[in-house]
Design a binder for these strands. Structure first.
Lengths: 194, 194
DNA sequence: ACCTGAACACCGTTCAAGT
DNA sequence: ACCTGAACACCGTTCAAGT
């Protein structure tokens, strides 16, 4: 459908240029060169449009992950890990503006400043704590700290989004702790304790 | 301020009961027992109300993290990790309904089904890949796979939200890979290769 | 059969009028 | 000085009228 593509294209362009706040059905229709009424033939409401846009994106991302996984059947496990991170990372950062626009299409509020303030506080508190550990010194405390906080906060958030069962969540929590500790061991200069 | 508290309380209650879609300035004012005009003396616009609500929550979370960190200065590093995860986790799950309501207050779209579909695809693709690794077997593939995906996807998302510099992002990516590999080593049954 | 866009209900926001 | 709520501009959505 040429009309459908025009609507999607218009939506992305408006999202990139003016942000989600200015994304109105009238504006999308105008830019796509159709009337509002026509838009409502393709999408029952505005949410459905944004939903479909994100769905398209996630479908494409799913394709890429499946392809990458298939291509690495039988590879050493470290290669698999690299591939997985790389594929996901490249998909997101390849067109970072689109990724960001889509994240924002879903978010009502401009909460970046809020997150910034909170993250800085948590960063400082944790860095001071880790610096005081009697059983290790980290080579690069800033990087170490940023990694741990991003991983932990991101994992918990994602766990919430995925609506895991209490049991799965509990297991995940244990695994996350295990993972963080294994990471610490690769990054620390241990102290001799006698 | 009793009025301010009433407004916040009304907002949370409406969010919990009816969801963000039905959260209107009129309804909040009505439930808080003030007129719309009064609300606009405290908040310049609706976004500011939701913003302030999230800010309050993040401030309290910041307090808890700082306190937990302070209380563990000089503790062994593994204790620190446990504390950090535990504090954050408990803060989020302690009142899971509020956490969820706040996450949703920020999200326009009901994207849970979307995430579900995508996550299932990625889960299946990755599980099949990991099962094929020639150099290891994992004891509990399902748990292992869920952990890796939640950690990786969550970390990348959080990295985006925090608006890291390209340099920080690049470093984080390397550290994430390192961390995942260290985790694999704790969970795999290695195969003898000769 | 498909498209149009004025009209409708309702939202966020304002401000003259009230206390 | 502070609160009120009708009024306004604008949004999402509909549907009678047009092709």
């Amino acid at each position: 459908m040429a009309t459908l593509d025009a609507i999607f294209e218009a939506t992305i362009q408006l999202l990139l240029r003016d942000g989600p706040h200015r994304l109105t059905t009238t504006r999308v229709a105008e830019r796509a060169g159709v009337s509002v009424g026509t838009m409502y033939q393709y999408f029952p409401h505005k949410k459905a449009l944004i939903y479909a846009l994100n769905e398209r994106y996630l479908d494409a991302l799913g394709d890429r992950i499946e392809a990458a996984c298939r291509a690495h059947h039988g590879a050493p496990v470290d290669r698999m890990i690299d591939t997985l991170i790389d594929t996901y990372w490249r998909a997101k950062t390849g067109r970072a503006d689109v990724t960001r626009a889509l994240y924002r299409s879903v978010v009502e509020m401009d909460n970046e400043a809020l997150i910034e303030v909170f993250a800085s506080r948590a960063d400082a508190a944790c860095a001071a704590m880790f610096a005081s550990a009697p059983d290790m010194t980290v080579a690069d405390l800033k990087r170490f700290n940023l990694t741990l906080l991003t991983v932990i906060f991101g994992t918990v958030r994602n766990a919430f989004e995925r609506n895991l069962s209490p049991n799965e969540a509990e297991e995940l929590r244990g695994e996350l702790a295990m993972m963080c500790k294994a990471y610490v061991r690769t990054r620390m200069i241990p102290h001799n304790q006698q």
